[in-house]
Structure formats: structure tokens, C-alpha cells
């Protein structure tokens, strides 16, 4: 999977590396902003109220 993405990125290797890192950073950002807050609510792992 990762090798496949690497093969399909354009440009010489430094450019590919840069694009790759940006891609990974974007995915991590999306996880922190949207996915993790959703998961926290969905799995009810931090409820502190009674009733």
C-alpha cells in the first residue's frame, strides 16, 4: 500500500518525500479534528454525569 502510493507520486524522490509527509500530516490532522472527537462520543469513554 505505502510502496504503491510512493510509486504513484510524481517527481524526483525529494519531492515525493515532501508530498508523502504532507499527506501523512493531513491525515493525522483530520484524525485529531474530526475522527477522534467523534470516536470519543460514539464509544462513551468519557462520561462523568449520573442519570
Amino acid at each position: 500500500m505505502y510502496a504503491w502510493i510512493w510509486r504513484h507520486l510524481p517527481g524526483p524522490w525529494p519531492v515525493r518525500l515532501l508530498i508523502y509527509l504532507i499527506l501523512i500530516a493531513a491525515i493525522i490532522y483530520a484524525l485529531f479534528i474530526w475522527v477522534f472527537p467523534w470516536a470519543e462520543d460514539a464509544f462513551n469513554i468519557s462520561e462523568v454525569t449520573v442519570g
Binding site: M1, Y2, I28, L31, F32, F36, A39, E40, I45, S46
Partner: peptide, 24 residues
Amino acid sequence: GVGELMLTAGAVVLLFVVYTLWGT
């Protein structure tokens, strides 16, 4: 491919721990 997916899932779970401990 399956191996890579499992490694990725592990990394995501670790990131989630980072999120709950520090990100929030």
C-alpha cells in the same frame, strides 16, 4: 497489504491515546 493495514491501525490507536491524554 494486510500487514500494512494492521500496522496503520496500531498507529491510529496510539494516536488516539495521544489525543485523549494530551490533545483534548
